[in-house]
Amino acid sequence: MTARAVLAITTGEPAGVGPELAARIAADGHAARLVLIGDRALIAGRATAIGIDADWPEYRPDADDAVAILHVPLTRPAVAGELDTANARYVLDTLDIAIDGCQEGRFDAMVTAPLHKGVINEGCPGKFFSGHTEYLADHTNTRQVVMMLVGGGLRVALATTHLPLQEVSAALTADSLATTLAILHDDLRSKFGIDNPRILVAGLNPHAGESGHLGREEIDVIEPVLEKLRATGMQLTGPLPADTLFQPKYLQNADAVLAMYHDQGLPVLKFASFGNGVNLTLGLPIIRTSVDHGTALDLAGKGTADAGSLRAAVALAAELASHHAA
């Protein structure tokens, strides 16, 4: 790593709030070096509209500019709030540049502004795009990744992510749960610098199954996996009823929580950190953080979008890069 962390910021959907939020964050001043990846005229235009001077130099790997722009040309000029499938490939190009730069050591981490999955799927026919996380996993040859949100003093990882509730139980297998816990444990050590992570594990069913009377997933899947991993030295507490584990008496003795499904863990975290949460992808060979919100097309170009989540994502990426380098 260079003298200070170099963070690649992909500016996301050009019709959304990503370009202006990236400009706002860049104008804040940071200990890390920020490289904004996107169309120069787009970034400068959105910056000017919100009163920011975006006279930042072109990115050069051997320079040490506090902020630089790595220019990627739009296919067609973007209009704030108006989606255009012609720019779908442009969005993927910015991601590819950031991923390659992280893998090749030019960037120490990447931070992603929101994109629009529908635009990419419509604009890149024959190439199904399900989201940042899956795209990053595919382009880094990573078999399994784990979604974790950070904010409000909490770290909440998910055993399953964007699934209909009726499919969660079948997706929660012993192998997948063991792999998820291993990734969470290893990244808490390598990325967060926590030597012996303490992880709280939620049950799937109400009251954690209540000894099998309200479901057997805890008995048949979760408990055996926890017992096996505890024998390797992991500090795992659970399965705990999800309606009571988010209490200070448990959280004060934990470094992270593993929830069994998306809406079991994230409502608590978003209540504690709304507007300042960070989405972190665990299991990748690179560091990637992201905002916890979407493209906000209705706010694009108006200068009213809250930059709190992107600001927190940049700060977390810099922190993780420092641990990774240590």
Rank of each mutant, 00 (worst) to 15 (best):
A3M: 14
A5N: 12
I9D: 00
I9P: 00
T10M: 04
T10Y: 06
G12A: 05
V17M: 07
P19Y: 03
L21D: 01
A22V: 01
A27G: 07
D28A: 12
L34R: 02
V35K: 08
G38Y: 08
D39P: 13
D39Q: 11
A44F: 03
I50R: 14
I52N: 11
A54G: 11
D55A: 14
P61W: 04
P61T: 04
D62M: 11
D65F: 14
A68N: 10
I69H: 04
L74M: 10
P77L: 08
P77G: 11
V79Q: 14
L83Q: 06
A86D: 12
A88H: 11
Y90E: 09
L92H: 10
D93H: 14
I97R: 09
I97H: 06
C102E: 04
R106H: 05
F107I: 01
D108M: 04
A109H: 00
L115W: 03
H116M: 03
G118A: 09
I120M: 07
E122R: 15
F128M: 15
F129L: 12
G131L: 06
T133E: 01
D138I: 13
D138Y: 09
V146L: 07
M147C: 05
M148D: 05
V150W: 01
G151E: 00
G151I: 08
G152H: 08
L154F: 08
A157I: 01
T161H: 12
H162V: 05
L165E: 03
A174W: 12
D175S: 12
T179A: 15
T180D: 00
A182Y: 07
L184T: 06
D186T: 05
L188V: 09
R189E: 04
S190A: 15
K191F: 10
F192E: 07
I194P: 03
R198P: 06
I199N: 00
G203I: 02
P206W: 12
P206I: 14
H207T: 08
H207L: 14
E210H: 12
S211Q: 15
L214N: 04
G215A: 11
E217W: 06
E217N: 05
E217A: 11
E217H: 07
E218L: 11
L229Y: 02
R230H: 12
A231Y: 12
G233Y: 13
G233P: 15
Q235D: 15
Q235E: 15
T237P: 00
G238T: 01
P239V: 06
L240P: 04
F246R: 05
Q247R: 14
L251K: 02
V257G: 02
V257M: 03
L258F: 02
M260S: 01
Y261A: 03
H262W: 05
H262Y: 06
L266K: 00
K270H: 04
F271V: 12
G275C: 08
N276I: 03
N276K: 14
V278A: 04
V278E: 06
T281S: 11
I286A: 08
V291S: 00
H293T: 08
G294E: 08
L297Y: 13
K302N: 13
A305G: 07
A307I: 01
S309D: 02
R311H: 13
R311V: 09
A315R: 11
A317P: 04
A317S: 00
A317R: 01
E319D: 13
E319R: 10
E319S: 11
L320Y: 01
S322P: 10
